[in-house]
Computed example of a mutant assay.
Amino acid sequence: MNEHLPEDACAVVHGEPVPREHVEAVLAAVPVRDAPYQGRGELRDQPPRTRSQNTTPLAERSAERQRRRWATQIVVADVLARRACEERGLKPPEPPAARPLTAVPQADVAGLGSIVAVVLASSPAARTLLTQLEADQEIPERATREYYEHNRDRFLTADALRSGVDPFGTATDADFLPYEHVKAGIEGELRQAAGRRAFFSWLDEARADVVYAPGHEHPGDPSHPDHEHRH
């Protein structure tokens, strides 16, 4: 029950209080206008702090509460990742000197969701865990071959591309890069995708037992009125 949380904690992870000041540090590091809020099942673009013709004080307060919940997830995910690395005997690199959390490629936000994208950009432990999860994935030969067969347009030769060959119509075998030449690349892409899915599954399971202080719940938690969880 969250009434037992220490007053200065935003959450408790396996009995370990997580200081609110860590959330404040994330909020300070990510200006409102820069926070990458659009992506995989997370939040929409973050509303601006300043009032505009289309916002109300109530909407602004709601947006700020959601922003705080979003930042809490960044902090909690880092704590969970550090614990997971310790349990697996992994040693993340030492974090660099304080750096802004704003340089997150939009493609990563779109593909990973804003929370995971920022966690991976800012947490050495999360990146170390993801690398291990990717390495653990077994990609069967059949999956690699099927990807090659079903995505022929990706493997046209340079000459075929220049000639405008239709990969699904007039192309012949000579218009495609040989399977053996692209097999390693395909396998790497499939392993990366499988590793990311494993990371999402790990995070969903790991944060299931986290206890949050009021105002720091997951942004998509339907138990609070401001919840925002869009797919």
Rank of each mutant, 00 (worst) to 15 (best):
Q38N: 06
E3C: 07
V13A: 08
N54K: 10
H14G: 03
A71W: 05
V32D: 12
R82H: 03
P17Q: 02
R67W: 01
P93H: 00
A63K: 11
G15R: 04
E60Y: 00
G41A: 15
P36R: 08
S52G: 12
Q38R: 13
E87D: 09
L5H: 11
Q38T: 12
V79W: 05
L80V: 06
R65L: 11
P17H: 05
R68E: 06
S62L: 07
T55C: 01
E86L: 06
K91T: 14
A29K: 09
R88F: 00
P36N: 05
R20W: 02
P92L: 00
C85V: 04
T56D: 01
L90R: 01
V26H: 09
R88S: 04
A25P: 10
A81F: 02
R40Q: 12
L43A: 14
R33D: 15
I74A: 03
T55P: 10
S52D: 06
R67C: 01
P17E: 10
P6G: 02
V76Y: 01
L80Q: 02
E60R: 14
H14C: 01
E87A: 10
V79C: 05
L58M: 07
A81R: 09
E64D: 12
L90T: 04
E3R: 08
R44E: 15
P19R: 03
P47C: 12
G15P: 07
E16Q: 13
R61F: 03
P92A: 00
